[in-house]
Amino acid sequence: MTRRYRLGRAAVAALFACVAAPATAGDIVLGLPLDCTLGESCYIQQFVDADPGPGAQDFRCGPLSYEGHKGTDFAVTSLAAMRAGVSVLAAAPGRVKALRDGMADQLMTEANRDQSTGRECGNGVVIDHGDGWETQYCHMKSGSIAVREGQEVAKGDVLGQVGLSGYTQFPHVHLSVRHDGAVVDPFAPDGGICGAAPAHDLWQKTPPYQPGGLIAAGFATRVPSYEAVKAGTAAEDALDTQAPALVLYGYAFGGRQGDVIEITINGPNGQVITHSEGLKKTQAQLFTAAGKRQPPGGWPKGDYVGIVRLLRGGQEIDRERVQMAIR
């Protein structure tokens, strides 16, 4: 049985926490739009594009956005998690203004892109909160919409489930916030400020700004395919002494050029392998792996611990620890 441990997120949260004041009078006040734990079962992949010209940047002037992005993407860790079911929640009380359901859950490719033209949001819900405020929830799972037009909802009510419909290549809910029709970044309603937290935001409890991190890690007997890593099926629960190789992989988001991913495996007889790899370019998502072939006589029985660390400028941004026994 493989055991996973989250380490390092508390320190990162302390360093990069958004310490903005609560919403001001007249502003909408938002809760999280997913039934998940940030930094464990979900994470924020992208923010509203705060760059008014060509190019893109998030509200802290990092690369967690893309040109013209109009919302915040709350992602789950794998396709397997999506299929198991993760509820999308109303971020604030209001009335269901519009919805769409029935679009297929599929990774967008050039071959199927035209199927979603004009319906890029996929399956989704729009809620009118009054005073010009509305929220929109995109890419929900086909057949999961649990509300109807005109229905009054309370904050935290289930709207449906996270899916893969519309223009998307990873399972998430895209939350758009608008006031009088204009897009508002809930993290920085007055605009982004490089190197500093905004004066206020729209969150009831402000999610910490995570400038990149590890989504998952796991042991395998070979370097897995990226498709298996994203699907959540790459990790093997158990290995025996005759496994052809022992490989540890790490799946990350928000990687920047110059970052280093460090992979270490320790076994019952000491260190099995340590490997460091520098990123040659900024990437929204990535994975890397390292391992060792079976030694003569097979693998010693006992506990094996794998640690994957994401380093930036020599500082640890995140780490994930997994443990597995070979019997």
Rank of each mutant, 00 (worst) to 15 (best):
E149F: 01
E149M: 06
G150N: 09
E152W: 05
E152T: 13
V153H: 03
V153P: 04
V153G: 08
K155M: 15
G156Q: 06
D157M: 04
D157E: 10
D157P: 01
D157Y: 06
D157L: 02
V158W: 08
L159G: 01
L159Y: 08
Q161K: 15
Q161A: 09
V162C: 05
V162L: 05
V162I: 11
G163Q: 00
G163R: 00
L164T: 03
S165C: 04
G166F: 04
G166I: 02
Y167G: 01
Y167R: 12
T168E: 12
T168V: 14
Q169T: 15
F170S: 09
F170Y: 12
F170H: 14
P171S: 06
P171H: 09
P171I: 02
H172V: 00
H172K: 03
V173D: 03
L175Y: 04
L175I: 05
S176Q: 14
S176P: 00
R178N: 13
D180Y: 15
G181L: 07
G181N: 08
G181Y: 07
A182I: 09
A182C: 05
V183R: 07
V184D: 07
V184C: 09
P186F: 03
F187Y: 12
F187E: 01
P189W: 00
P189T: 02
G191A: 11
G191Q: 10
G192Y: 07
G192H: 09
G192C: 13
C194H: 08
G195C: 12
A196D: 15
A196L: 12
A196C: 06
A197V: 09
A199H: 13
D201L: 00
D201S: 14
L202H: 09
L202D: 10
W203C: 05
W203T: 08
K205E: 15
K205S: 13
T206P: 01
T206V: 04
P207H: 04
P208Q: 08
Y209L: 04
Q210R: 13
P211E: 06
P211F: 01
G213Q: 02
G213N: 03
G213A: 03
L214M: 13
L214F: 06
I215F: 00
